[in-house]
Amino acid sequence: MCLGLPMTVVEGDDFSALCEWHGERRRVSTLLIGRQTRGARLLVHIDSAMRVLDDAEAEAIDRALDGLAAAAEGRAFEHLFADLIDREPELPEHLRK
């Protein structure tokens, strides 16, 4: 399974950015999305920034990844998916008619 990580730009140039996620830093390509400023949140997949995220979406992805890790380790994870409890699943906007 491949996952995108919600990374935060530390510094960048026209072609790449140094990004951080949970204390890990790596240089990622920004050729698909253009130059980004410090603090921008990016969805990074295989060291390439795929798109810019708003803070709410980045936090939701972060919680989901933390929840998957907690579940895999046998720890409580339900609190990390509080926005999904007691509601019907919804299609993403781009898949709705």
Rank of each mutant, 00 (worst) to 15 (best):
residue 1 M to T: 05
residue 1 M to D: 05
residue 1 M to H: 09
residue 1 M to N: 06
residue 2 C to T: 05
residue 5 L to H: 15
residue 6 P to R: 04
residue 6 P to F: 04
residue 7 M to R: 15
residue 7 M to Y: 12
residue 8 T to V: 13
residue 9 V to Y: 12
residue 9 V to I: 05
residue 9 V to G: 14
residue 10 V to I: 08
residue 10 V to D: 07
residue 11 E to R: 10
residue 13 D to Q: 00
residue 13 D to F: 04
residue 13 D to A: 00
residue 14 D to W: 02
residue 14 D to N: 06
residue 15 F to D: 09
residue 15 F to Y: 05
residue 19 C to I: 03
residue 20 E to Q: 12
residue 20 E to P: 12
residue 21 W to G: 01
residue 22 H to S: 15
residue 23 G to F: 09
residue 24 E to K: 01
residue 25 R to P: 00
residue 25 R to Q: 13
residue 26 R to M: 01
residue 27 R to L: 09
residue 28 V to W: 01
residue 28 V to R: 04
residue 28 V to T: 08
residue 29 S to G: 03
residue 30 T to M: 01
residue 34 G to S: 04
residue 34 G to T: 04
residue 34 G to C: 10
residue 35 R to Y: 03
residue 36 Q to D: 05
residue 36 Q to V: 05
residue 36 Q to I: 02
residue 37 T to E: 08
residue 38 R to M: 00
residue 38 R to N: 05
residue 38 R to I: 02
residue 39 G to M: 09
residue 39 G to A: 09
residue 43 L to E: 14
residue 43 L to A: 15
residue 44 V to M: 10
residue 44 V to H: 08
residue 45 H to P: 00
residue 45 H to K: 06
residue 45 H to N: 02
residue 49 A to V: 06
residue 50 M to V: 14
residue 51 R to W: 08
residue 52 V to C: 05
residue 54 D to A: 06
residue 57 E to M: 08
residue 58 A to H: 06
residue 58 A to S: 12
residue 59 E to T: 08
residue 60 A to D: 13
residue 61 I to S: 00
residue 63 R to V: 02
residue 64 A to W: 06
residue 64 A to H: 09
residue 65 L to I: 10
residue 65 L to M: 04
residue 66 D to Y: 01
residue 69 A to K: 14
residue 69 A to M: 12
residue 70 A to I: 06
residue 70 A to R: 14
residue 73 E to L: 15
residue 73 E to Q: 14
residue 74 G to L: 14
residue 76 A to Y: 02
residue 77 F to Q: 00
residue 77 F to A: 14
residue 78 E to V: 07
residue 78 E to L: 11
residue 79 H to C: 09
residue 79 H to E: 11
residue 81 F to Y: 09
residue 81 F to E: 04
residue 82 A to Y: 06
residue 82 A to L: 07
residue 84 L to T: 02
residue 85 I to N: 10
residue 87 R to W: 01
residue 87 R to K: 09
residue 88 E to Y: 04
residue 88 E to M: 07
residue 89 P to E: 03
residue 90 E to P: 06
residue 92 P to E: 13
residue 92 P to Q: 14
residue 93 E to I: 05
residue 93 E to G: 09
residue 93 E to S: 13
residue 95 L to F: 11
residue 96 R to D: 09
residue 96 R to Y: 06
residue 97 K to M: 08
residue 97 K to A: 13
